[in-house]
Design a protein around this nucleic acid. Sequence first.
DNA 1: TATGAATGAGCTTTCATTCAT
DNA 2: AATGAATGAAAGCTCATTCAT
Lengths: 188, 188, 188, 188
Amino acid sequence: MVERIVAAAEDVVAERGYDGTSTNRVATRAGVSPGSLYQYFPDKDALITEVLDRYVTALEARISAAFPGRLGPDLSPASIRGVVSELVDALAERPALLRVLSERLPRTAGHRRVAFAQRIDNVTTTALRFRNGPDPLVPVEAVAWVVVRTVEHVAISYVLEEPDLERSMVVDELCTLVSAYLRLRAAP
Amino acid sequence: MVERIVAAAEDVVAERGYDGTSTNRVATRAGVSPGSLYQYFPDKDALITEVLDRYVTALEARISAAFPGRLGPDLSPASIRGVVSELVDALAERPALLRVLSERLPRTAGHRRVAFAQRIDNVTTTALRFRNGPDPLVPVEAVAWVVVRTVEHVAISYVLEEPDLERSMVVDELCTLVSAYLRLRAAP
Amino acid sequence: MVERIVAAAEDVVAERGYDGTSTNRVATRAGVSPGSLYQYFPDKDALITEVLDRYVTALEARISAAFPGRLGPDLSPASIRGVVSELVDALAERPALLRVLSERLPRTAGHRRVAFAQRIDNVTTTALRFRNGPDPLVPVEAVAWVVVRTVEHVAISYVLEEPDLERSMVVDELCTLVSAYLRLRAAP
Amino acid sequence: MVERIVAAAEDVVAERGYDGTSTNRVATRAGVSPGSLYQYFPDKDALITEVLDRYVTALEARISAAFPGRLGPDLSPASIRGVVSELVDALAERPALLRVLSERLPRTAGHRRVAFAQRIDNVTTTALRFRNGPDPLVPVEAVAWVVVRTVEHVAISYVLEEPDLERSMVVDELCTLVSAYLRLRAAP
DNA sequence: TATGAATGAGCTTTCATTCAT
DNA sequence: AATGAATGAAAGCTCATTCAT
C-alpha cells in the first residue's frame, strides 16, 4: 500500500512538479482513495518528503558505491574522475526529480540532501587530513566544503541546464579543477 | 502605487515563498484592494516575475560594477577576489529572495538569471581567449562554463546553507580554487 | 446529492435567471458546500445545462405523448387541438425556466431545443407527404418549418407575455390558423 | 458624447452579447473614461437598454414605413407580402442585436419591443374591425394578437436559425398562412 | 483498514461603480 | 464636465483534509 502510494507520488512529482502534485491526483494514480493516503502520511508534505527522501537514498547508494574502498581516503585523479562521472550519471537518471529536489531544497527533503552532503564533507575532510597530516595552515573543513559544493552543483547544473557542451568535456574540466585545487591544498 | 505593490510583494515573497504568495495577501500587505493589483499586473505571475526581475537586475548591477573595467578581460587573482567577494555580499543581502529565485529558476524569472549567467560565460570566454590566444587544446567555453557555475553555486550555497565556516575563509578557498584552475588553463 | 443540487439549481435558475445563478448560491440553497457541486458537474455551465436539459426532456415527453399514435401522421383538427393545448399547458407549467431557456437558446441547452424542433419538423414533413403524395408544387419542408415555428412561438409568447386574452380563445385561433393553412397546403 | 458611448456600446453588444459587454470595454471602445459613462447612464443596464431601444426604434421606423398608408387598414395579400418581406429584411440587418434583444427580452428593453408589438396589435385590430364591421363572432383582439406573434416570431426564427430554406419560399408560406387565416376571419 | 463523499477556506480574477482631482 | 485610479464584493473553481460508513 505504502509502496503503491509512494510510487504513484514519484510519478506525479516527476511529471508535474511540486505544486502540480495534488493528493487527489496521487490517490487516483495509485488506485487508492484519498483517505487511505492519510493513514500513512500525516499530510501532503510528508508524502513528497518521502518521495524525495527515497530519491536521495538511491542517489547516496549509487554515489557511495563509486568511492573505491567505500568512501575511502583515496583522492587520486582517477578516483575523482570515477566519482564525478558516476555522480553526473546518477543525477542524469531522474532529472525531473532532481529539479524538484533542487527547487524545494530547504523546506522538506532538503535535510536529507544537506545531511548527505555533510557526510561527504566529513569523508573528504578525513581524506584530506589523512593525506596532509596535522597542518594548521590548511583549513580542511572549508576546503572539503568548497570542493563538495563545487562538484555537486556543477554536476546538477550540467544535468538541469543542458548546456551545449560535451559531457566528457565538462567532466574533464571539473576533474581538472578539483585535482588542481586539491593538489595545491595537499601538504607540500 | 506600483512601488507599494511591488514592495509588498517583495516582502511576502521573501517571507512565504512563491506558493505562499497570494494576490490577496500582497494586496492586504500593500494596503490596497485586490483589484488595484490587476491594474498594473496582468496576473499573479507577472507580479512575482517583476519582483524577481528587479532582484536579478540589482544583483547584476552590483556584480557587474565589481568587474574592474566593466566586465573587462582581467582575470588576475585580485580581480577574482573582488568579484567573488562582492558576489557573496550581494547574494547575502536578500537570502529569502535568493532562495525563491533558486526554487523558481526555470519557470519565470529564471530566464533572466540564466541569461545573466550566460553573459558572464561570454565575458569569461572572451577573457580566456584574450589571455590564451587561439589555443585549440583548451576548450574555453567549457572552462568558462565550469568556472562560472562553480563560483555562482558555491556562493549561493554559502548564503543559503549558512555552514559554520568563516566567510573570508570560504571566499579565500573559492578564489584559490578558481585561480589554480585558470592558471592551469592559461596557455603556458 | 445530485438531485439536491439539481433541484436547488432549478430553483435558483427559475428565480434569478442564468447570470444570477452563481455556483455558491446554488450550493447554499442546496445546503451543500461549493466543492461538492464540482464532484458532480465539471463547471457551472454543465450544471445549468443539466437543469435545462431535464426541462426540455420533460417537455418533450409530455408533448410527444400528446401526439396520437406517437407523433403519427395524423393532422386532423382534433389532433392539432390536442397537441397545441397540451403544448401550452406544458409550457405554462414552468414559465421561469421557459424564459431562461428562451434567453439562453443558442449557447447550451439550445441544441436540445433546436434538435427537438427539428424532429417535430420531420414528423410534420412526413405527415404532409403522407397526406399529399408526391406533389412538387407544395414545398413541404418550408410548410412544416413555418407551422412548427408558428405553434411553438405563439404558445411561448402566450405563456411569457401573459396577454389579457382567454387561453381557450388563443388556442382556438392558433388551431384555426394552422388548420386553415394545412388544408390549403393539402393536395386538392 | 452620448453618441460615442452608445455607438461603442452597440458594437460591443453586437460582438460579444449582453454578458460580454462590460462597462470598461464600452468606455475603452468609445475612447472615453469609465467615469464619463456614468454621467449619462445610471448603470450598465440603462446603457444597454438605450442601445436596444434605439434598435427597436429603427426597426419600428422601417416596418411602419412599409405599411401602405402608414399602418393603414389595408390587409390585402400584396400589402401583407410587402410588410412581411420588409420585416424579414429589417430583422436580418443586425442579427447580433436581434439575438441579444430576443435573449434579454423581459428584463430591459423588452418593454419597448412589447409596446411596439402591441401597437401593431392595435393597428391590426382596427384594420380587422374596419373590414369586418361589428361582428361579435370573431374575437378580433385574439386574431390580431395571434397573427402579429406569428409573423414576428417566424421572421425572427428565420433570421436567427438560418434554416436551409429559401428566403422567398418562407416568406411565401408565411404570407399564405396569414392570408388564409385572415380570409377565414373576415366576415363572410 | 480502507473508503470516498463531503468539506470549506482559500485561490485568482473580473467588473460595475465611485470619487478626488 | 470629464477623468481614471481605486475599489471591493463576488464570481468560478481547487484541493488538502476529514469522518461516517
